[in-house]
Design a binder for these strands. Structure first.
Length: 372
DNA sequence: CTCGATTCTCTAGTTACATCA
DNA sequence: CCTGATGTAACTAGAGAATCG
């Protein structure tokens, strides 16, 4: 009988994984037939699944919890323990873009544009303006001239006059130029600092975006505001891909060009995948270490058994048929119970040999033998 | 039904820029 | 102020799928 480890065959999923995770991993493994079961979610599913998701969105935009985003990966990876090297490793992932608590939006606090035209926010102050619709990239005064703008995809963005006023009235203390606003901010008390910084942030984004529109083709890099990033992040948690309808709705809501939303999602997927690759790499590294250690242990055991064989030549010269595995129950039936005991305990004690040979596949006898 | 052109969206890789230590 | 590292928005190329005539 031989014992071996093999990669390449269809794996039997680890029992510690729940059914859903197993299913996901089987999907992952099917592709390259690695036959390796990992306690990690599938951040990127097959094209067919993605298409299915897009089609689902055309019907309804309900949240599907089995979306394999990295947060799901975190939850699933936490179900396993790293304490035992033989047990798969716990891998803790932090969200890739840590959002300050004060800027966090939970999905229960608002709804996405494709769910409803209005966002519902429960935390005033931290995200002022969100609930009334984003306008952070619009020019405060001059931008109003462009009350209706045509995006690159021919989408008309509605007039900003509904939100612009309230959003900027609160922060009229700052300078109109981008850089010099900091001096004013320093004079304010700490309670307002965060609030103002957010505004400064959005204002920078606003001025750059407007510059970009003025310059046209020049590649001016826009830094998305915290609110925009947080909103996109929450949106990404819901769905890692967008259909055109969602993209337009999101762009309209955030006052970004649809192309910007599209690019953000592309880059976000790339970041997630990169992170997932790092996690996979780390996991495989640890698996390799575990297997190396196991291999070392088995080699040592083999050496000890060989040593036993040389020190007990007569004892080991028993007929081969006396140590046999039952093919049905996979129990080792031995003619000499002491041999199995010695093998199991790796003992080198001298053993009595004058015992009758038991039929290897007689379960009743084998059971009796093992019991003795 | 098949075929080629077109369009759209994706990934992977890269570049350019903003920010920070 | 300068500089290198880092993060990320934006770009490019190429592939695959869907659509249309």
């Amino acid at each position: 009988m031989e014992l071996g480890l093999s990669l390449g065959e269809a794996p039997t999923p680890f029992s510690f994984l729940d059914h859903k995770t197993q299913k996901n991993n089987m999907v992952n493994n099917k592709k390259d037939q690695l036959g390796f079961c990992m306690a990690l979610g599938n951040a990127f599913r097959s094209d067919q699944e993605k298409r299915d998701q897009v089609e689902d969105h055309d019907h309804d935009y309900d949240h599907h919890d089995d979306d394999g985003d990295e947060h799901e990966i975190i939850r699933r990876s936490r179900r396993v323990s790293a304490a035992d090297p033989g047990v798969p490793i716990q891998l803790d992932l932090l969200p890739s873009v840590p959002v300050p608590r004060s800027h966090m939006i939970t999905s229960s606090q608002f709804r996405f544009p494709w769910l409803s035209d209005n966002l519902v926010l429960s935390e005033p102050g931290s995200l002022d303006g969100l609930g009334k619709g984003f306008d952070v990239n619009r020019l405060p005064a001059a931008g109003a001239a462009a009350a209706t703008e045509e995006t690159e995809e021919g989408v008309t963005i509605s007039s900003p006059n509904s939100t612009l006023t309230s959003f900027h009235v609160d922060f009229c203390v700052r300078n109109s130029s981008t850089g010099s606003g900091r001096d004013n901010i320093n004079n304010h008390n700490n309670n307002k600092r965060d609030h103002i910084n957010i505004e400064l942030d959005t204002e920078r984004a606003s001025s750059r975006a407007s510059d970009d529109e003025e310059n046209g083709s020049t590649r001016k890099k826009l830094r998305l505001s915290k609110e925009q990033s947080a909103f996109l992040e929450e949106s990404f948690k819901e769905h890692s891909t967008l259909n055109p309808k969602q993209k337009l709705a999101l762009a309209k809501q955030l006052n970004l060009r649809p192309r910007q939303v599209e690019v953000w999602f592309q880059n976000r997927r790339a970041r997630t995948k990169l992170k997932q690759t790092e996690v996979d790499c780390e996991y495989l590294k640890r698996c390799c270490e575990t297997l190396t250690e196991e291999n070392r242990r088995l080699q040592k055991e083999l050496q000890e058994l060989r040593a036993l064989k040389t020190s007990q030549p007569f004892y080991m010269q028993l007929p081969a048929t006396t140590l046999t595995m039952c093919p049905s129950c996979e129990r080792v039936a031995t003619a000499n119970p002491a041999i199995s005991a010695a093998t199991a305990t790796n003992s080198t004690a001298t053993l009595p040999l004058a015992k009758p040979i038991i039929h290897p596949f007689s379960h009743a006898q084998a059971g009796k033998a093992s019991a003795s």
